[in-house]
Nucleic acid binder design. Structure first.
Lengths: 152, 152
DNA sequence: AGTATTTCGTTTCACTCGAAACGATCGAGG
DNA sequence: CCTCGATCGTTTCGAGTGAAACGAAATACT
């Protein structure tokens, strides 16, 4: 009898499933933000940070969004060009540029927040309360473990 | 008293957490496959399908991997150039090109499978058996729901 | 003070991605 | 037969990504 042919069941392979699910979700959200507000996900993430924590430097936005500094730099440039955000050089460190929402930016931000929460709500509608709690717990552990792997 | 300022807690927002986790995992795996085997993830996914189901057309690979046809086309082109798969025009439909692993491709495939499973194993090491089962169940429900959303 | 090193953010460059256009082939309907 | 529309897969093109190089400014070192 021939030895078993090794193979991988892609549709049961966790990294693959995660990737497919994330792409499905992210693409749907990105399309929505683009159509409704003309914003990309990096742009919206930057605005979300400014909306929650107030004025911040590009580096702080990087830290809080886990986005690359190049991505943040471009997101800020486009937000400035659209008048949603304004930049001011930091008085105490002229390398830094502190960025803050304009009134217009704040208004857009406030309109997006419920849209974002609604996406999340619709997504979680597939789960009951216990499963939501389990997912929260499991994602935390996976991310913690994944972070360690990268470092090691 | 001022009305509450709306804001979104990015680090608790499910689509964001999924995206960060997936990027962490996918980037780590992609780097590993690239260094060890010179393969991208699309290339490896195509090989995984051929290794499991045998010869297939590009369209079948698309269906089984949830990848775009452009991505599959390019993956196949590179696999052919490297001699890991070979292409033959389908006798009954000359639009189709049936693709199969070469002996060399099979050998590479068989070496990657345990590497892939090991990535998954290390990832799941952060969870206990019950959590693994919960995750499996939850991912299935989320993907099913996400698929519906897209269609609707 | 004066030079070297580090840090902040932008720009450049090479790469990936997928929508749309495309050529080739097949099947259906005159 | 012979169009016409559909399907298979490739190519093109515009947009996004991140590593690396970069200029400017701050900090460390002598």
């Amino acid at each position: 009898m021939q030895s078993t042919v090794p193979h991988l069941e892609l549709e049961a392979f966790l990294p693959y499933r995660l990737s497919v699910l994330t792409n499905t979700v992210s693409n749907a959200i990105a399309r929505d933000y683009q159509q409704r507000f003309g914003l990309t996900i990096p742009e919206w993430r930057a605005m979300a940070v400014l909306g929650r924590f107030g004025p911040a430097s590009a580096g702080e936005i990087c830290d809080r969004t886990a986005m690359d500094k190049v991505t943040v730099s471009r997101a800020n440039a486009r937000l400035i060009a659209r008048g949603l955000v304004k930049r001011a050089t930091d008085r105490t460190d002229r390398r830094r540029a502190i960025v803050r929402l304009t009134r217009k930016g704040r208004s857009v931000h406030d309109r997006i927040v419920p849209v974002a929460l609604d996406h999340e709500r619709r997504m979680l509608a597939a789960l009951n309360a216990r499963e939501c709690a389990q997912l929260d717990c499991i994602l935390g552990k996976l991310q913690a473990g994944a972070g360690d792997e990268t470092a090691a």
